[in-house]
Design a protein around this nucleic acid. Structure first.
Length: 812
RNA sequence: GGGCUCGUAGUCUAGGGGUCAGGACGCCACCCUUACAAGGUGGAGAUCGCCGGUUCGAAUCCGGCCGGGCCCACCA
């Protein structure tokens, strides 16, 4: 018998599945359509271990649901747009984003290369998506047109608007960002204490700030109304040095008296609080930072300096003129560009016009929708609600970048009216590019102006990916199929993008269709390195999935992935891979053994159930219990629980015990006994293979091909049905007996081991005390353990059987 | 600071009120046994993070503390 070689055999079946189109989706096939809203992978060029985990789960679900009789619509998608690609192109090719056409072309090239590599990696994972027909890239014209169409629909409902309010701006990337793309990064800085003269008094007011360079935009000094220190100064004016301006001293409840000096200077704009106060008190606006993070002309001698660089220089000047009187080291959280980018640059608030979508009015609807879906694990629903509750901004959808879906709007430069494109064109799958295309009208429909300008912006990539359920279900492309495929059944995704992908998808698709986008949300945790820390280059603990597949094959990697628990972070572990490999070796050898004994088996053989031995009834009952349990677990997406139950059953019950019990009959001369044992083997091999098929699709395909195909007649094991439970064969009493028989067998084997005997050596007599329920097992035990005589007796023997009240005496 | 999660042998983990807490890796001993030595059999190793509470009974439920992790948070 040849050793199992995963590399050769996996490749063989992957090519076979491809060639024979085993996983082609047929919309007219029977069964309820089970649509998987498969996460479009960002086109980084390589699958990381997180992908391997996530996509092993998804592929498992697809295979399992097919076996359960669903018509599974399993697409493959790529999320092509996004800052990481643009930044890479800028760095690697040295192309600037201002050279729009060339820049875009380089991004396209990069993306095409990345996708080719990633598709191959998906294939090597044993991925069963319909990569030919149900395939999409967010950069495809039809996809972009669909995104634009969805925006036009939202515009028609009055949800899209243009705003010049301050937005979150990344000076490094040169674009506006959504709240979801920014986060806090701990940084060490300084707290600078400044003392300003109060006009018409001899008093000073002291403030503390981390950003002295913003002094040129200072428009007020804020204190708390209850603060005794400043009560008499409220209403007076403070003289701001360098800016050469007098600003009001205002009392507001939201000032924290405990922090710094209890007084804070308000700059347009330092943070969100400044925006709020500026509006509340109708203060003037002075912009001292430009989109490239340089100080503007109002900063006088400091104009043109980087904000960071200017900080110390301005401080130095303030020190010199005696305004800065104290400074201390200070660790604080700085709002930075954190999401889906290695940028990490601090964010500025700048009033640059943007397209926005109204989100705030729908928060309650979104929460209600989230509650109506089933989340696995259920507590993840709370994460979405928490995020929804914290939404206090509408969604900025425009980005001042180049590679992406163009924002599909023109606008009137005089009155600001938004002008949408022709919907029909979009529905034909042709997208528009307002930066190049002629506007659909010559005059503004509102004010009659001819100054119509097309947007140069592209969409936030979450605008693209928030319609994946619609895209994969053929929205606006095939109404009949859409009716069956939407709402999608399953949204699989990671914990990290609940606030983005899940949130935006629920929001947008709910509004666009009036229905929930999916029924089930299955959330996976993040993959940690073998050392338990987050798997990250900076920790040097990255294990690429390719390395695992090269050494042990995809089936081993899949077993690792499918042992993870819902929602929990999960470390990569070579030991689990090795265990998985050992299990495959066991499965391989046992299948060979069973297959050999099934060579002459006639599947039409119907045994007289009364002639089954206790060992047969035991293992068949266990088999059905395992099917029952696994099915239950898998319907709840608890893959690990099912996998472990199946592996333990096969290894320790089928292989270690049942096969040993069956051998004497298989090698004996009684044809009827032999056929009964073969019939049981047939059940075991067939159903174990089916149970394992979605977990380890390659080796089970090979086993099916070698030993089972002649019975099933199927082209592939993956076209067969999931095994049902035969309740008539389930018997808890025989399972209890079986457990006891296994324990007795273990004690007898232990005796042989302790006495340095080979397991095949015969024992003259074993007395079983207090174990009369095993009387009917006498023949099974005698043959399996090579015992000449078994006696049942009351009392206590010298050898204890672990876990039970039974004991033994053994004579060599 | 808030929320959510997790804390079980040297290591990784299963179990979520009731037989002596399952397993894997590692460790020790024995065995070439007609599928399997890239095996098999057996063994040693855990007061289930700490302190209380509920209960006839807690690893399991509740509260507090300690310690990881993730997410959120406007404090200049």
């Amino acid at each position: 018998m040849p050793r199992y070689d995963p590399l050769e055999i996996e490749k063989k079946w992957q090519d076979f599945w491809d060639k024979e189109k085993i996983f082609k989706f047929d919309k007219n096939a029977p069964g309820e359509v089970y649509t998987i809203d498969n996460p479009p992978s960002f086109t980084s060029g390589t699958l990381h271990m997180g992908h391997a985990l996530n996509h092993s789960w998804i592929d498992f679900i697809a295979r399992y649901r097919r076996m359960r009789g669903f018509n599974v619509l399993f697409p493959l998608g790529f999320d092509c747009h996004g800052l990481p690609t643009e930044l890479k192109v800028e760095r690697v090719y040295g192309v600037r984003k201002d050279d729009r056409d060339k820049f875009r072309q380089k991004c396209e090239e990069w993306t095409t290369e990345a996708i080719d590599k990633m598709k191959e990696q998906f294939k090597r994972l044993g991925y069963s998506a319909d990569m030919e027909n149900e395939y999409y890239e967010t950069r495809m014209p039809w996809y972009k047109a669909l995104v634009q169409y969805s925006l036009v629909e939202m515009y028609e409902r009055g949800l899209v608007y243009r705003s010049s309010q301050p937005v979150l701006w990344c000076p490094n990337c040169g674009t506006a960002l959504a709240k979801a793309e920014v986060g806090y990064v701990e940084k060490e800085g300084k707290l600078y204490y400044l003392a300003f003269d109060v006009v018409d008094t001899d008093k000073k007011i002291k403030i503390a700030t981390t950003r002295p360079e913003l002094i040129f935009s200072c428009v007020a000094v804020m204190v708390h109304p209850d603060d005794e220190r400043y009560r008499d100064l409220v209403g007076k004016k403070a003289k701001i040095p360098l800016a050469d301006r007098e600003v009001p001293i205002i009392a507001d409840e939201e000032v924290d008296m405990e922090f710094g000096t209890g007084a804070v200077y308000l700059c347009t704009y330092g943070d969100e609080m400044d925006v709020k106060w500026q509006r509340k008190y109708k203060l003037p606006v002075y912009i001292s930072i430009d989109p490239k993070d340089k100080l503007t002309s109002i900063a006088g001698e400091f104009a043109g300096l980087d904000a960071e660089e200017a900080r110390e220089k301005v401080a130095e000047k303030l020190r010199k003129i005696g305004v800065l009187y104290k400074e201390e080291k200070y660790v604080h959280n700085v709002l930075s560009h954190t999401e889906r980018s290695s940028c990490m640059h601090p964010i500025e608030l700048l009033p640059i016009p943007q397209f926005m979508i109204k989100v705030k009015p729908f928060i309650e609807d979104i929460k209600k929708a989230a509650r109506e879906m089933k989340w696995f694990p259920d507590y993840m629903e709370g994460r979405l609600e928490d995020w929804a509750n914290s939404m206090d901004w509408d969604w900025i959808i425009s980005r001042q970048r180049v590679y992406g879906t163009p924002v599909p709007f023109w606008y009137c430069e005089d009155c600001g009216e938004i002008i949408p494109p022709d919907k029909e064109k979009l529905l034909k799958g042709e997208f528009v590019d307002p930066a190049k295309d002629k506007p659909p009208v010559e005059k503004c429909p509102k004010c009659g102006s001819t100054r119509i300008k097309g947007s140069l912006d592209i969409c936030d990539c979450w605008v693209d990916s928030s319609i994946t359920p619609l895209a994969v279900a053929h929205w606006k492309r095939d109404d009949e199929l859409f009716g069956k495929a939407y709402p999608t059944y399953l949204r699989p995704q990671g914990t990290d993008i609940i606030r983005t992908w899940a949130f935006y998808t629920i929001f947008r698709d709910l509004i666009l269709t009036g229905k929930l986008p999916f029924k089930h949300v299955v959330v996976n945790g993040m993959v940690a390195g073998p050392d338990g820390k987050k798997m990250d280059k900076s920790y040097g603990n990255v294990v690429p999935p390719e390395e695992v597949i090269d050494k042990y094959g995809a089936d081993a990697l899949r077993q690792w992935a499918l042992e993870a628990s819902l929602g929990e972070d999960y470390p990569f572990d070579w030991k689990k891979i090795k265990y998985a490999t050992k299990f495959q070796t066991k499965l391989w050898n046992a299948s060979f053994f069973m297959g050999k004994h099934l060579e002459e088996f006639d599947p039409s053989f119907e045994p007289d159930l009364k002639r089954l031995r206790p060992s047969d009834r035991w293992i068949l009952s266990r088999l059905n219990s395992v099917i029952d349990y696994s099915t239950d677990m898998l319907d709840k997406y608890e893959f690990g629980k099912a996998l472990n139950a199946i592996r333990n059953f096969f290894w320790s019950e089928v292989c270690d015990n049942y096969l040993e019990m069956a051998k004497s009959r298989l090698y004996g001369n009684d044809d009827e006994e032999k056929n009964i044992a073969r019939w049981v083997l047939y059940q075991l091999l067939m159903k174990s293979t089916l149970l394992l098929a979605p977990f380890i699709p390659h080796i089970t395909e090979e086993i099916h091909d070698l030993y089972l195909k002649k019975f099933t007649g199927a082209k592939s094991v993956h076209l067969l049905k999931w095994p049902g439970v035969d309740k008539d064969l389930m018997d808890s009493k025989i399972e209890e007996e079986g457990k006891l028989a296994v324990a007795v067998a273990s004690a007898v084997r232990g005796f042989k081991t302790k006495n340095q005997m080979s397991q095949k050596e015969e024992l003259s007599k074993v007395t079983i005390y207090n174990g009369s329920s095993l009387r009917q097992w006498e023949t099974d035990l005698k043959e399996t353990l090579k015992i000449r005589e078994i006696e049942f007796a009351d009392g206590v023997g010298s050898i204890a059987v672990e876990g039970v009240d039974v004991s033994l005496n053994i004579e060599k």
